[in-house]
Amino acid sequence: MKLTLGPLLGHWQPQAWADFYARVADEADVDRVVLGEVVCSKRLPFIADLMAPAMERLSRAGKQVVLASLALVTLPRERALCADVAAATEGLVEVNDPTLLHYLERGRAFTVGPLVNVYNEGTLAYLAARGAETVCLPPELPLAAITALAAAKVTDIEVWGFGRVPLAISGRCYHARVHGLHKDSCQFVCGEDPDGLPVETLDHESFLAVNGVQTLSFTAACVLQEVDALKQAGVARLRLSPQQTDMVAVAKIFRERIKGSLAAAAAVRQLQALVPDMPLANGFMVGRFGAERITV
């Protein structure tokens, strides 16, 4: 079982962005790194010049690099960005919306991100025939569905392994809204909350996190307790979604759990210590409500 580092979903400052990928290249024990702006096209200019050097450095460090496309494409300018992603690399690109398929020649290999609705064998078979070599499944899928899809053996199956879960995407920017602004004049307030702005219920219970036009879970999903079951099901990869913590250490915990040199309970404790403010949850994986927390 391999490890994929997912794209940064939050709006990180350019220097933090560059430092993060430099450290990943030098130190993180992950097999594949997906990078690029997935959530909001307005953020792209901040990292546009940093992308190629980061990709090159990761590649030289032996990581397989995948360039991600936008998840919600509405404007002609955003369609052009999808065309740019298809043209920018001869390597793998991650499809986060069918828009990108329009720009990929038939037979060109690609990966599919977790925001594309792949719930069943029919959709998986279509994407495999189009050239999908890995599909990261929607995080709300339970183990039973994951097992059925992995059994189809038509693409590698990747599962959301760690991190706040992308639950929804909208035309409206909620970061702007809670700051009394509109999307078109947002002042990039999402940059103040690189892991998202926590949303509490009326009883002051942490519930969700707002990330611009995206809504994330407040809890961080964690499949450390299901690693053996996922391996047995034939799942090829786990996706680790970057949070503002030591992602090198996160990758190490997952690697040791996969190898079997770290027990599940100890792995969960170590991971929770790295993200003390983000309760770990596995409700989706066990077929219950997603916010349900891990019990060790």
């Binding site: 998840a71 919600l72 925001l115 609705n117 719930y119 929607p138 995080p139 709300e140 879960v165 639950l167 929804a168 995407i169 909208s170 035309g171 409206r172 519930f207 969700l208 809504t215 879970s217 409700g283 989706f284 077929g287 219950r288 409500f289 997603g290 916010a291």
Partner: peptide, 21 residues
């Protein structure tokens, strides 16, 4: 719907029941 339809699992996060599934 204020979210892009078919791309929202807020309901299943809170209840386990989702529009998609």
């Amino acid at each position: 719907c204020v979210m892009a339809e078919g791309r929202c699992s807020l309901s299943s996060y809170a209840t386990g029941k989702s529009p998609n599934m």
